[in-house]
Simulated scan of single mutants.
Amino acid sequence: MATGSSSEVRNVMESSRDDVFHLQNLNNLGMMLVSVPLNGRNYLAWRRSMVIALCAKDKMGFITGKVKKPSEDSPLFEKWKRADCMVIFWFLGAISKDLVDSFLYASSAKDLWNELEQQFGVSNRPLLYHVKHEISSLTQGNMSLMAYYTKLKKLWDELGCLKPMPVCTCEGCVCGAAKAIAEIDQDDKLIQFFMGLGDHYNHVRNQILLMDPLPEANKAYSLALHVEKQREIHVSENDTSENVAMAVKGGFNKKDVGSSKLRKGEKKDDRFCTYCNKSGHMMDACFKLHEYPDWFQELKQKKFNKVQAHVAIQD
C-alpha cells in the first residue's frame, strides 16, 4: 500500500511539473500579453498586467524561481528551456522598442524579471516620490467625479505596491494592530479624496465628516456620485425649461397654442402633458406653460354668456 501511495504521489508531481512546461497552441511568438508596452513610466500598471497574464498561463514560477532550471543532462532541460524562452519572448514583446535592446541578452526569464525590478520596480525611490506627489497634488478640477476617483484609486494601488502597509505578525492578530492600521489607512484615503474634491460637494463632504465611524473612501465616493447624478438631472431639467422659455420668447404665437392637429391614428386621450400632468394635450400646446391664447378667452366668455342667458330664461 505504501509503495503504491508513493508511486501515485510521484506521478502527480511529475504530471504537475510537465504542466508547467506545457505550451498551448495559443502560446505563440506573436502573442501580446499586455495592451500597453512598458515605456519606463508605467511600470507598476504594466507589472500588474504581466503578473496576471503569467498566472493565467501557469508560468509565474519561471520568474519567481519556483520552477528551477534543470541540469543540462536532465531529460527536462529542453522542456524547461523551451518554456523559459517563450516567457522571455513574451517579456520582450511587452517592452517598448526604445527599451527592449537593454534586456535582449538576459539568460533566463528570472534574470530578466530581476533586471526590470531593479531598474523600474520597488527599489526605485524616485517613483515612490512621484506617486506620493501626484496623490497630494491631485484635484478634481474639470474632471468628472468618476474620472477623479478612478485616477486617485489607481495612485493608491500603485503606492500600496511600492510601499505596502505593515502586517501584524502575531497569530490571529490578538493585539488589534492589523485593524488599527487598516482604519488609519482608510481614514487617510478618505481625507485625500475630500481634499481634492470640488467645492460643489461641500455639503455632502461636511455631512460625511460628521459620521461616526467614518465610512471608507469607496463608500464616500458612492454617496458623492449619487449627489452628482441628482445635480445632472437638475441641470438637465433647467436646460429644458430654458429652451422652452426661449422658444416662447423667440416667436411663439399664442394663437397657435392648442391648434396642432392630431396625428393620424392618434386619439386626444393618448396625449399627456408632462408640465401640468393632464391628458388631452402635449407640453408644446399647454396653456399653463405658454399662456392662454386669445381665442380661448373668447370661447370661454361665449360659454359664460350662454350659461347666463340660459339661467335668465329659466328665472
Rank of each mutant, 00 (worst) to 15 (best):
A224D: 02
E266P: 01
V235C: 07
K151T: 15
V12H: 07
S15H: 12
L225T: 07
T169Y: 04
M50N: 06
P70V: 07
K81D: 03
V248E: 00
T3V: 12
T3C: 01
S6N: 10
T64W: 01
A285D: 15
T169W: 07
L152E: 09
V307L: 15
T150R: 13
E298N: 05
F62L: 06
D101E: 12
F296K: 14
D18K: 13
S102V: 09
D269S: 15
H281T: 03
Q140G: 03
V131G: 09
F272T: 05
L33A: 04
F62M: 04
K69Q: 06
S71A: 15
Q118P: 01
N42W: 05
V100D: 05
Y275K: 06
Q297E: 11
L162Y: 03
L44F: 04
A94K: 09
C55Y: 05
S108I: 03
A182S: 14
L26A: 09
V227S: 02
C276S: 00
F77H: 00
A94N: 09
A45V: 13
S5Q: 11
V20N: 06
A180L: 14
E158W: 05
G160M: 03
F287E: 01
P37G: 11
S5Y: 06
C85R: 13
A220R: 10
S5W: 09
P164G: 02
T64N: 08
K278W: 01
